[in-house]
Design a protein around this nucleic acid. Structure first.
Length: 419
RNA sequence: GUGGCUAUGGUGUAGCGGUAGCACACGAGCUUGUGGAGCUCUUUGUCUGGGUUCAACUCCCAGUAGUCACCCCA
C-alpha cells in the first residue's frame, strides 16, 4: 500500500523553483502598493459561513465553497474571497480608524469547483482596498496601482487596456430606459457577460426573448463603438448623467497620469452584486492569452451590512496564476531559487570539525554556506555544488587543518584565491 | 455538479492483442586534493480496480487525476 505523491485535487505544491516565482510576484505586488502608502493586513482562512451567505446566497455557499460543520456545531467556510473579510475588519474598527484607510493583503483563497488550467481550488490573490473616499479619486488611484503592477509584469501599455463601466449607468439603462424588472435585469446582465463567448445571433435571440420589441434599440446601444455614441442614445437626465460623468472623469484623470489605454466598455459587468459604481478590468490583449488580469470596483454599501453608517470603498483583486502566466510570457527573466553562496567540501571525515568552524565563521559574516557531508571524492563534491548552482567552493582537507588556511574557488572562472 | 478528450521509467516521448524501446536526467567508472566535455556501464516504467481473452500496456467498464467545454466567476 503506497501513498500517492500527488497533491490534493486542484491545489499546487510549491517546489523551490515555484516558490521563487511566487516570491517574485509577491514582491512586485508589495512594492507597488506600498509606494502608495498601503498597509498590509491579514486574517484567518476560516470564516463563519454566514459572512458569505448574507451576500452571495445559499447556492454559492453550498456549491462553490468549502463549508463544513466544526465540532462545536458552527458552520465554517474556507474564505473564497477577501472582500467580505476586509469589510468586516474595517467595519469593526470603524470608530478608531483614520480614514481614508488604505489596506492590502495577499490571502490564499479557496473555491470548490471543477479545476482546470488557471482555475484552481486554491489560489493567492492581491487585494487592495481604499475606504472612506467618495470621489472618483479613489478609483483613479486604485486603477493607477493596477497599471503599475501590470507594467511590472513586463507588459507595455500597448499590450493591455483598462476597461471601465459603471453600475449606475447599467442600472439606469435597465430600470429607467427599458423598465426591466429586477429579474429581467439580472438575466440581461448575465447574457451581456457572455456576449463575447457566444455567437452574435444567439446573443441577439436571447436579448429579444427578454426585451421583446425593445431588443433592437438595446442591441444598438450595446454595440456602440465608443463612449460618445453610447451616451448620445440616452436621455439626458440627472441620474444618467452622474454615472456617465464619473466614467468620463476617471478616464481623463488617468490620462493626466499617463494612462491612456483606457476604454469604456458597456458590456463589462463583473459578477459580484456588491458593486455600486465604477467597475473596471485590466485586460491582456495578447490573442493567445486574452484574460482579465485584474478586476475591481466600487462597493459603497457593503460595509453597511455590519451596521452603522455607510463607508465608501473601492478595491481590486489580482490572482497569482495569471501573474505567473504573464511574467512567463512577457518578462522572460529566469527566476531561480536562492542557493548557498558557498559549498564546503570535506576531504576526509576527520576534517569535519574544522570545516564546520570555517562554515560558521562565514555565516557569521552573513554568507549562506552549505556543507557537503557526502564523503565522496572532491571532484564529485565540486560537480555537485556546480549542479546546485552554488558559485563558490572551499575544500577542507589535511593541509587546511594543519595550516588553518583555506582557498576559495570560484566555479565560474575556476580561479582560487586565498582567504 | 454535467459532458468530451487524455494517462507508458524522475522528465519528455515511441510502440504493439503475444518478452515495452529511445532521449535527457540520476547513479557508478575511466580520474583515491579539484568540477563543467567525452566515452563505458547500471538502476528505474505501462495510474488504480474489475471484465473480455489461451494471452491485455493495447479492447471494454468503473474509479482517480489532468485537460477542455458547460455551470460559476472573487
Amino acid at each position: 500500500m503506497k501513498l500517492p505523491t500527488d497533491p490534493y485535487k486542484g491545489v499546487r505544491d510549491f517546489y523551490p523553483a515555484d516558490m521563487a516565482m511566487q516570491k517574485k510576484i509577491f514582491n512586485i505586488w508589495r512594492n507597488a502598493v506600498e509606494k502608495y502608502g498601503y498597509e498590509e493586513y491579514g486574517a484567518s482562512v476560516l470564516e463563519p459561513a454566514e459572512l458569505y451567505r448574507a451576500k452571495s446566497g445559499e447556492e454559492i455557499v453550498n456549491k462553490q465553497t468549502y463549508t463544513f460543520i466544526d465540532r462545536g456545531d458552527r458552520e465554517v467556510t474556507l474564505r473564497p474571497e477577501m472582500t467580505p473579510t476586509v469589510a468586516r475588519m474595517v467595519a469593526s474598527k470603524k470608530k478608531e480608524l483614520i480614514f481614508p484607510v488604505r489596506w492590502y493583503s495577499i490571502p490564499n483563497l479557496f473555491r470548490y469547483e471543477q479545476p482546470q488550467r488557471g482555475r484552481l481550488r486554491e489560489h493567492w490573490q492581491l487585494n487592495v482596498d481604499i475606504f472612506g473616499i467618495e470621489s472618483i479619486q479613489a478609483e483613479v488611484e486604485i486603477i493607477q496601482i493596477a497599471c503599475d503592477i501590470t507594467r511590472a509584469y513586463g507588459l507595455k501599455d500597448s499590450d493591455f487596456e483598462v476597461r471601465l463601466n459603471n453600475r449606475k449607468v447599467m442600472n439606469y439603462v435597465a430600470k429607467e430606459v427599458f423598465s426591466l424588472t429586477e429579474e429581467q435585469a439580472q438575466k440581461v446582465s448575465k447574457l451581456i457577460d457572455k456576449k463575447d463567448k457566444i455567437p452574435a445571433d444567439i446573443f441577439a435571440d436571447g436579448i429579444k426573448e427578454i426585451l421583446g420589441d425593445n431588443a433592437p434599440k438595446f442591441l444598438t446601444l450595446l454595440n456602440s463603438k465608443n463612449f460618445e455614441e453610447f451616451a448620445k442614445q440616452l436621455p439626458q437626465t440627472k441620474e444618467e448623467h452622474e454615472g456617465l460623468k464619473e466614467i468620463k472623469e476617471v478616464i481623463s484623470a488617468l490620462e493626466k497620469l499617463g494612462i491612456t489605454n483606457t476604454r469604456f466598455d458597456q458590456t463589462l459587468m463583473r459578477g459580484f452584486d456588491y458593486y455600486t459604481g465604477i467597475v473596471f478590468e485590466v485586460f491582456d490583449k495578447n490573442p493567445n492569452n486574452r484574460r482579465s488580469v485584474f478586476g475591481g470596483g466600487r462597493y459603497d454599501d457593503l460595509l453597511s451590512l455590519f451596521g452603522g453608517e455607510k463607508v465608501p470603498a473601492v478595491g481590486f483583486g489580482a490572482g497569482d496564476v495569471i501573474a505567473r502566466d504573464l511574467i512567463e510570457t512577457y518578462d522572460k527573466v529566469l527566476v531561480e531559487a536562492a542557493t548557498a553562496d558557498f559549498c564546503i567540501c570535506i576531504l576526509g571525515n576527520e576534517n569535519t570539525p574544522f570545516a564546520l568552524e570555517v562554515a560558521q565563521s562565514l555565516r557569521d559574516k552573513g554568507q549562506k554556506v552549505a556543507v557537503d557531508f557526502s564523503g565522496r571524492k572532491v571532484g564529485d563534491q565540486i560537480k555537485s555544488a556546480d549542479k546546485r548552482k552554488i558559485p563558490k567552493v572551499i575544500c577542507i582537507g589535511d593541509d587546511e587543518v594543519k595550516t588553518g588556511k583555506y582557498k576559495i574557488k570560484d566555479l565560474a572562472t575556476g580561479e582560487e584565491s586565498d582567504m
